[in-house]
C-alpha cells in the first residue's frame, strides 16, 4: 500500500499540476488539490507547441518500427528455432550477446554513416534498423517457437510443404501471441525513445513527441502546467495500451527469463 502510494505520487503531482492556474502553481504553500480545475491547460498545451504534428510523427514512427520488428523477428526466430542447421547455436549465442552492447557505443559511427548516405533528418535511421531484428525480440519469439510441438512441422513436410510454406501457412498463424508481445514492446519502445530521434532529426516538422516536449521550455521560464498536461497526454496512450493488453506485457517480461 505504502509503496503503491510512493509510485503513484509523482503521477498525482503531474495531474494536479496540469490542472492548476499559473498563479496557484506559484502560490505558497502549494495546494494539494487544485482550487479550480483548468481543463483548458490541455487545450492550451496542444496549441503551445505543434502537438498534433508531433503526435502524428510519433505514431508514424511507432507503426513503421512495429511492422519492421514483427516481420523481421518472426522470420529470424523461426530460423533459429524450427530449422536444425550447423552452427545455429553459436550464431544464436552471438545474437543474444548483442543485447548487452550499449547502443551509445555505435552512435558516433552510425551518425557519420547515415550522414554519408543522406539519411540524416529522415525517418530511415529510426525505422529501417527495426527491419533487421533485435536480440531481445528474437530471444522472446524463439522461446515461444521452441514450445510448439515438432510434429506440427513434420506433418506439414509430409504433406509436401517446403520451409517457406510451413512458416507462412502453419507456424505464423500459431505465433500470434508472441507477435502481439513483440509488436507491443517495439511500439512502446519507439514511442518512448529519445536518443535516436535526438541524434538523427533536426527539423521541427519531423520531431516526435519525445523531442517536441522540449519546446515547453522557452528562454526564461518553463510552462509547468502545460508541460505536465502534455506529459499526461504522452503517458496516457501507454497506460491504455497496458490496460488493454496486460496479459502480453506480463508474458513479454517474464518469458524465459526465469530459466535464462
Amino acid at each position: 500500500m505504502v509503496m503503491c502510494a510512493c509510485f503513484f505520487l509523482p503521477f498525482y503531482q503531474m495531474l494536479i499540476t496540469s490542472l492548476k492556474t499559473t498563479e496557484e502553481l506559484n502560490a505558497y504553500p502549494p495546494t494539494f488539490w487544485p482550487r479550480v480545475f483548468v481543463w483548458g491547460n490541455y487545450a492550451a498545451a496542444i496549441q503551445y507547441i505543434p502537438f498534433m504534428r508531433f503526435t502524428l510523427n510519433s505514431v508514424i514512427l511507432a507503426i513503421g518500427v512495429t511492422i519492421g520488428a514483427v516481420m523481421s523477428n518472426s522470420l529470424i526466430a523461426y530460423g533459429f528455432a524450427r530449422i536444425q542447421w550447423a552452427g545455429r547455436d553459436l550464431i544464436f549465442f552471438i545474437a543474444i550477446i548483442t543485447i548487452f552492447i550499449p547502443f551509445p557505443v555505435t552512435i558516433v559511427a552510425l551518425f557519420d554513416i547515415f550522414a554519408k548516405i543522406g539519411w540524416v533528418n529522415t525517418y530511415f535511421p529510426l525505422i529501417v534498423p527495426a527491419f533487421f531484428g533485435s536480440g531481445m525480440y528474437i530471444f522472446l519469439m524463439r522461446q515461444f517457437l521452441m514450445e510448439l510441438p515438432k510434429e506440427i512441422s513434420e506433418a506439414a513436410r509430409i504433406d509436401g510443404a517446403n520451409e517457406a510454406q510451413t512458416f507462412l501457412q502453419i507456424i505464423l498463424p500459431l505465433m500470434k501471441p508472441s507477435i502481439a508481445v513483440v509488436a507491443i514492446f517495439a511500439g512502446v519502445a519507439c514511442w518512448n525513445d529519445f536518443l535516436t530521434p535526438l541524434l538523427f532529426l533536426n527539423t521541427e516538422e519531423l520531431y516526435p513527441l519525445s523531442i517536441g516536449l522540449q519546446f515547453f521550455r522557452s528562454e526564461h521560464n518553463v510552462a509547468y502546467s502545460l508541460l505536465m498536461a502534455a506529459s499526461a497526454m504522452v503517458v496516457f496512450p501507454v497506460i491504455v495500451l497496458f490496460l488493454a493488453f496486460q496479459r502480453f506485457f506480463i508474458e513479454g517480461v517474464t518469458v524465459g527469463s526465469v530459466k535464462g
Binding site: P10, W191, N192, F194, S231, I239
Partner: peptide, 29 residues
Amino acid sequence: AILYIPSILPVFALSFVWIVFLNPKFGLF
C-alpha cells in the same frame, strides 16, 4: 498494475514529472 505501469512509461516524460515533483517550491517530494 500501479507498480508495473511506471516502468513502461517514457523516460523523457518522467524526467519532466521529476523536475516538478522534486521542485523545492511546489514539489510534493
